[in-house]
Design a protein around this nucleic acid. Structure first.
Lengths: 334, 334
DNA sequence: GCGGGTGTTTTGAACGTTAAAACGCCCAGG
DNA sequence: CCTGGGCGTTTTAACGTTCAAAACACCCGC
């Protein structure tokens, strides 16, 4: 494995000149640069990242805690990780994975990774209501950026990027309204979920704006399962609410709605329009295809990395991105 | 941030003694060790990983290429990554993510990561038929271990860990047989998939062993989708094969089978037993629950890391692990 | 011919750690 | 009383890179 020294010897210049050829090529005379570059190529030299990091005290690695929440599956995690990696690599950085206890118990792990110089900072996701990590990291002055807002906090510590769930729900309502639906229900999560309340709020506001009814049209599920989605749908239908549109808070719940509708001989997309959230792989693969919201993963990742690496200049950055409606058969014009 | 030097000064010993206190405590006299440890704790010292790696030329990071195959969703990737991380951390290592072109085009990326000393080696997954990566890495003498065999190669370069798909299928057949089924079909993938052929072989062999028919009971799907699973099931039912059991090659295909059965008024689990593969989050969440095979992720990860870090002593390690049958409603006794 | 500026290259030191050799001490054996 | 060896500790020298500053080369105007 070639080193700077060997390249320098081969090109008959000093070590520092080779270093400059890589980090500040404008400082070299054209012919010297050419000679050095030739030697670099010839010897197949690659800078040793450890030596560089030791000197500059920047490791160019970003920590990401891989979640392990058995009850809440993360169907789009692979998409997110891929986007995050790609965005990091565009700035010459990489993602380092680690596991940690949830909540404040895991913070020593974060601290350790930072103190031992394994990472420069962190990307948080799977943000919880009143997530303690943000405040903790800010206190320790450890760089981080959050994917997802810490709900119910008026002022959130540190920068964040999030997708506008309320706008998504509103868009879903408008889309169903555009395709002729007039009694649009909402299937959501327990009140404790900030994300759930956000999306619920968007549904309610937009319904009111369009003059659509909302009374008794919102059902909360106990958990994110097909079973619960079906149960909620059954509840809506049994109560004779004459629902012709359903905005489900997740693809999984939407799948439950589709199943229950089909079971009762109703045609999703024709008799009742259904929308989900997150555009998980399932949405594409079921029949009829499930209309859903795609999170702009590439943009999210790009912003996260930009904020984290851009240095927190002054006020923390806050970016609310818009989800994209992906229309499929489940919301075909009735 | 405290350094060895500062700790040494505080404990009134040499720098090397502090280093030894951490890496070879048995070399120190008990009282010296106690004194040094006290200083370490007091100053909240953490060794700088970069400096250490520079000196020892081992970074304790393992590269993993995050796949981006839009058509083949990896529903259990989060499980795998978590297990892999946890296993790595048990040996003081971490996982570094990166993206790369598929196939041989991506190899420069692997090479670069290794040459720049960002990683010590790689864990490969998403192994393809005739995967070129294994041979390439072996030629370059870059350490790696593969999750998944390179199918159709008689002798595979390098060590691997895999789950015994044939044994899984066979177990599925036996389970359906035990619950009274006698005409058990198989729904699989194109012939080009080594993994598919492996599982198909297990089904055929076990059926023959039990004296069950196999003729015209295997259907190949074009892709891994619910739609295709439903189509294959319809094909079996339309042809009047009197199928009372279905071994599906994936949970997604199995879901398609469940849907088609339900659509025709047949009760999955009662009239026809169905099994899937991989025990994805979906298997648990549908109704009836889908009987499926759980890959022993923790064990897989443990073996991968052990092989990769154990130094390839002599012959490359090859580990074939057994999947675990998770019985749910879809295969309830008929 | 000389001082001063500009642009390029080299020198010396440092980042924080560990491997290997050297050192000082004490004790057993001749 | 000297020698050899084990033990615990310190010294020396790296690992490969970059920073800061010094040195050098060159050109220009006076």
């Amino acid at each position: 494995m070639a080193t700077l020294k060997q390249v320098a010897a081969h090109a008959e210049v000093s070590v520092q000149t080779v270093s400059n050829a890589l980090n500040a090529p404008h400082r070299l005379r054209a012919d010297t640069l050419a000679r050095v570059n030739k030697s670099i190529e010839l010897l197949n030299y690659r800078p040793n990242r450890n030596a560089r990091s030791l000197r500059t005290s920047a490791v160019e690695l970003i920590g990401y805690c891989v979640p392990n929440w058995p009850n809440q599956t993360h169907l789009v995690m692979d998409q997110f990780l891929h986007a995050l990696c790609a965005a990091a690599e565009r700035t010459g950085r990489h993602i380092l994975l680690f596991t940690a206890e949830p909540g404040v118990d895991g913070m020593p792990t974060y601290d350790d990774l930072h103190a031992r110089r394994l990472v420069d900072g962190f990307v948080l996701s799977q943000t919880e209501t009143r997530d303690p990590r943000h405040g903790w990291l800010k206190d320790q002055q450890i760089p981080f950026v959050s994917f997802g807002r810490v709900w119910k906090e008026s002022t959130q510590p540190g920068p964040w990027v999030d997708v506008d769930g309320a706008a998504g729900s509103a868009l879903a309502v408008r889309h169903l309204h555009d395709t002729g639906r007039r009694r649009i229900a909402f299937i959501g999560w327990p009140k404790s979920s900030g994300l759930g309340e956000d999306r619920l709020g968007g549904w309610r506001t937009e319904c009111k704006r369009l003059g659509l009814p909302t009374t008794s049209l919102a059902v909360r599920c106990r958990e994110d399962s097909i079973e619960e989605g079906a149960r909620a749908t059954a509840e809506l239908l049994d109560a004779g609410r004459e629902v012709d549109g359903i905005v489900a808070l997740s693809d999984i719940l939407a799948l439950g709605a589709l199943r229950e509708l089909t079971r009762r001989g109703l045609r999703p997309g024709t008799d009742v329009g259904v929308t989900g959230f997150d555009d998980s792989p399932l949405a594409e693969v079921v029949s009829p295809g499930l209309t859903s919201f795609k999170q702009p993963m590439d943009l999210i990742a790009e912003e996260l990395i930009a904020i984290l690496t851009g240095g927190s200049g002054g006020t923390p950055a806050e970016r609310l991105l818009q989800p994209e409606l992906v229309i499929r058969g489940s919301s075909a014009p009735g």
